[in-house]
Simulated scan of single mutants.
Amino acid sequence: MNAAPWMSRQTDPVVDFLRMLVEIESPSFDTEASERIATPLSERLAAIGGAVRRIRTDAGTSILADFGAGPDPLLLVGHTDTVWPRGTLDQALPWSHDGTVIRGPGAYDMKSGIAVMCEALERIGGAPAMPVRVILTCDEEVGSPTTASLITQEAVGARAAIGFESPHPDGALKVGRRGSTRVIIRAVGRSAHAALDPELGISAIDELVDQLMRVRMLVEDPALSAPVLCNIGTVAGGTRANVVPDVAEAEIGLRFIDGESETAVLNALDGLAPIRHGSRLEVETLSSRPAWRATAPDAALTATIASTAASLGQRIDGRPAAGAGDTNLLGSLRIPTVDGFGPRGGGAHALEEHVIVESLRERIDLLTALLSSA
């Protein structure tokens, strides 16, 4: 019998499997790479005993795997895409493992979390004490534009959800996440010669600047139920100084603590109107994840995990996180949810990306215990 591909280079199957995942570079929207990483993952989940489905969209291939029969599954949620372009592995961030720390593109965010899922399921022979559904999406890093509806559809009737993103630096779980929305505000005016016929032009850049001042007032409104983070990430428009610009746009990132402030700001953005006669304004939502404010069921799930961890000599707690992820979709639906079940490490989206091997093993032990107890 031939050995599995992830058991060919080292003596540690968990590290071998993680290395295999990292060495299949899988940037968001690279459909070929997404299919390549989905193949060994699907094969392993099926070999463990899962009923595997592959869902293909314009962004790539997502994986669903069901273990055990019955309603009310526990969801194990992760993603296969990374922020790293192809070639990173051979240049800026090669794979390395010194026995203590693992480095490589996507190792921390979040292929090590996927390794935790697969290893724990294999340890229990694919027979958890409750039904389990694995959801691995292909486009989380870009806001899940093609898989958000898949996640919410597959979550119907779920008893709880565990996300395998990276934890807080001290290993604490993430319980509650800010909502995250990316929008483009596009101003359309009319071009003209800036000196000979300026009165015939309508400056899209001037219109955009004034609209951005409006946005600043909206997010700083003291009547909002909670503070809103707003970052104008990019601004583009115009061609040259002697031409009145006819198009200008800005991409804006917004973060919300609660649904009330989120709804108020997004409705106000949708209601923006042009200031200059003859100009036109477009507001386009690129991606949106609702705010997830932790509830009592989330706290109860965290307490259950903490109790199981204590029985293994581990200490786990949870607190809110600023970043958004796929668990926003689940927590906002009032499904008991935690995130950050991936191993400790650091440097997500940076050249310092790394995973602490000891934590990788701790998370595997903890998930194994959780899946083994009813």
Rank of each mutant, 00 (worst) to 15 (best):
G253R: 02
L254C: 02
F256A: 03
I257R: 14
I257P: 05
D258G: 15
D258N: 15
D258W: 07
D258K: 07
S261P: 04
S261L: 12
E262Y: 01
E262P: 08
T263K: 15
T263D: 15
T263I: 01
N267D: 15
N267S: 15
A268T: 13
A268L: 10
L269M: 04
D270W: 05
G271W: 00
A273K: 01
A273I: 00
P274W: 00
P274A: 01
I275D: 00
I275M: 01
I275L: 10
R276L: 02
R276C: 04
R276S: 05
H277I: 04
G278L: 04
R280Y: 04
R280F: 03
L281K: 01
V283I: 11
E284D: 01
T285Q: 04
L286Y: 00
S287L: 07
S287H: 05
S288G: 01
R289N: 04
P290M: 04
P290K: 03
P290A: 05
P290Q: 04
P290N: 02
W292D: 02
R293L: 14
A294L: 05
A294Q: 10
T295S: 14
T295Y: 02
A296Y: 00
A296G: 04
P297L: 12
P297D: 14
P297V: 11
D298C: 12
A300S: 09
L301K: 10
L301V: 13
L301N: 12
T302E: 13
T302W: 04
A303P: 00
A303S: 15
A303Y: 01
A303I: 02
T304F: 07
I305Y: 10
I305T: 08
I305Q: 12
A306V: 09
A306T: 12
S307C: 09
T308Y: 01
A309C: 06
A310Y: 00
A310C: 06
S311C: 03
S311A: 14
L312I: 06
L312T: 09
L312P: 03
G313T: 05
I316Q: 11
D317N: 13
G318N: 08
G318H: 08
G318R: 08
R319Y: 11
R319K: 14
R319Q: 08
P320N: 04
P320F: 01
A321S: 15
A321H: 14
G323V: 12
A324S: 14
G325L: 06
G325S: 15
G325F: 03
T327H: 04
N328L: 09
N328K: 02
N328T: 08
N328M: 04
L330C: 09
L330D: 10
L330I: 08
S332Y: 03
S332K: 05
L333D: 00
V338H: 10
G340E: 13
F341R: 12
F341L: 14
G342H: 09
G342P: 12
P343W: 14
